[in-house]
């Protein structure tokens, strides 16, 4: 007797019900197993998984496997599978729901910690930089450029300038670990004559709470950022990337 390819003794399908409820446009049942998703996914093969297998396991109700595989954290949620899928199956959405099903304290610590750090201050910085730290670094770097780089005595890096047209955010990496990398951006904005500002609140461009799939924290971060832009009366939320 050969082993059956699939052991369906443990069919639970609770997760499938959740997918059908929370992703009403997820098209789980339209998957015709063509494998286009798996063929174009860099995570194919990791943990002996791929997007096609993952969708099959969801459809077959293999909840134990679906909810225990660390593969959902080895997917970068890049959505190339969704983009390529001829039936518009929301594969990445299912990966997101599987991430949510992990108890928070068992999710990858690095992602959860980055989310927690962002909740510490209204800056939303995943590296935990405070409002004062950010303003200090910006002003310090600006002063140095004005003093040491001829022709840039008038360079600006406004903070909390009410009514500025652009609200520029900034990944924490620059102010925290390589502040000189902000200067080229400021020079470009200066030459373009852009009316812009940073805000001490909400400037952190990154958001690991989404990747941690902590929905409450994700929503909190987005609300803080949106309020920061609106409180300064800015017209455009401008991302550096």
């Amino acid at each position: 007797m050969t082993e059956p390819a699939l052991d369906l003794k443990n069919q639970k399908a609770e997760f499938r019900k959740k997918v059908e409820e929370l992703l009403p446009n997820g098209n789980l049942n339209l998957c015709f197993t063509c494998g286009t998703c798996a063929g174009g996914c860099p995570a194919t093969g990791l943990e002996n998984m791929d997007p096609r297998k993952f969708v099959r396991m969801v459809a077959l109700g293999l909840d134990d496997e679906v909810l225990s595989t660390p593969w959902v954290w080895m997917c970068s949620m890049c959505m190339r599978c969704n983009y390529a899928c001829p039936m518009n199956v929301d594969i990445a959405g299912m990966v997101g729901l599987a991430r949510q099903a992990w108890p928070r304290d068992q999710r990858p610590k690095g992602i959860v910690n980055s989310c927690d750090m962002a909740l510490k201050h209204d800056t939303c910085s995943a590296m935990g930089a405070s409002e004062e730290d950010f303003q200090f670094v910006v002003e310090d770097v600006l002063e140095e450029v004005r003093e040491t780089q001829p022709g840039w005595e008038d360079l600006q890096a406004p903070v909390n300038k009410e009514g500025a047209y652009y609200y520029l955010n900034q990944n924490s990496r620059e102010p925290v670990t390589e502040p000189d990398e902000m200067v080229p951006l400021w020079k470009i904005l200066h030459l373009a004559g852009a009316d812009w500002t940073y805000g001490t609140k909400g400037w952190g461009a990154e958001n690991y709470c989404m990747f941690a799939q902590d929905l409450e924290a994700w929503e909190h971060i987005v609300r803080v950022k949106a309020k920061a832009v609106e409180d300064l009366g800015c017209k455009v939320w401008l991302n550096t990337e």
Binding site: S76, G110, I111, S114, Y208, F211
Partner: peptide, 8 residues
Amino acid sequence: GGYLQSGY
């Protein structure tokens, strides 16, 4: 997707 922070 948090990969750089995930430890994997």
